[in-house]
Amino acid sequence: MLKNIKINKLFFLYIFLIFTGSVVANNCNAVEPEEFLKDPKQELRARNISQNVRCLICQNQSIDESSAPLAKDLRIIIRNKITEGSTDEEIYKFLTDRYGDFILLNPPFKTSTILLWILPFIFFLIAIVVLYWHNKNSKKNN
């Protein structure tokens, strides 16, 4: 089965906490030289986009780093779209229309992800309140 044969680099990282009994291999055949666009500016855009697009059948890996055939197809599609003059937004929309938000490594800002983006700031505000409170009390004490 296509999706189970391809194993990815980050799967190996699972030994960071020692995983068991998995067959792993490291294939370093990510983006290939033949895929590169002639225009370096366009190529840079393509690389940037591919680094934000998840390899769907891998674990936490972008299509830029993946050797999966689907990742390669997507890289080629992204480059074709760039040469055809699509904007980055159009390309991301093309991808999410087909694969959902799951394909974006950088989650978009919308209702389901509001908490994800806002909570770090709320944490930050709480920290500032704590500091202020401590500071105020210290003046009272003295």
């Binding site: 959902g100 394909i103 974006l104 490594l105 989650p107 389901s112």
Partner: peptide, 19 residues
């Protein structure tokens, strides 16, 4: 967070390096 989204919506998201 991807787990929380999975529970409360039918959607699936990824949170990766850029975040």
């Amino acid at each position: 967070y991807p787990l929380i989204v999975e529970i409360f919506t039918s959607n699936r998201i990824s949170v990766g390096e850029p975040y």
